[in-house]
Amino acid sequence: MRGKKIILSLILPVVLVILWEIGGRTGSINPSLFPTPGRIFQAFLKTMGNGKLEANIFVSLRRVFLGYLAGAFLGILAGVIMGLSETVHTVFSVIFEVLRPIPIMAWVPVLILWIGIGEPSKVIVIMIGSFWPIFLNTYDGIRNVDRKYIEVAQIFRKKRLQTIFEVMLPAALPSIFTGLRVGIGSAWVSVIGAELIAASAGLGFMISYSRELAQPANMYVAVLVIGIIGYFINVIIKKVEVKLLKWN
């Protein structure tokens, strides 16, 4: 059953790649816009061979890792505190409601102005990008903890902190994980965006640089690698989620 599904899911991509290759070779697809899969694969091997691809992947992953970690930490912290205290939520509500709709990319020039073009500005963009979904889902999760569970903690005379850690946080965990999953997607979008605008390394930089040098095959290598890495990050998060939420 599982094998059958995998085969079924692979048919369409394989057919498309074959058509693309044939189209490129027969000249019905312009190879300077769409290099054939064969050419892209050669470019992949070449950039891997001279270490450029790995270097760019490493730079982007490092930024995502740092920014996402900071965003997740702050998002969960803010979500829990505001979920617990209506007063704190009210105090921050106006500022948050104004900041939230700002597209992440709008922060890139602002941050460059503030702290320059170096690593911190990119990491902070990613932090902002992952903060919002994680904060919102954590906040919702804490706010929507079933009163009935809290009453159980009350009846058994548990202290406030114990109620938060043993009842409210576990109850909100599925929601927090939704935030973490959306957040990593958003972090990945942010890093590429930031690198497209201003960077001297990273997968986003590789795309814009290849365009400037008219190396379309390298550009596609970077685009595909971004997709593949995003896919694997998702797989990892899902694995962690299944393990931690096996009760759900």
Partner: peptide
């Protein structure tokens, strides 16, 4: 709430994560 009185609820209210 008092130590000497406790309650079994209509819905079992077990914590699903425990």
């Amino acid at each position: 709430i008092d130590q000497d009185i406790s309650m079994v609820f209509q819905e079992n209210r077990l914590f699903p994560w425990r």
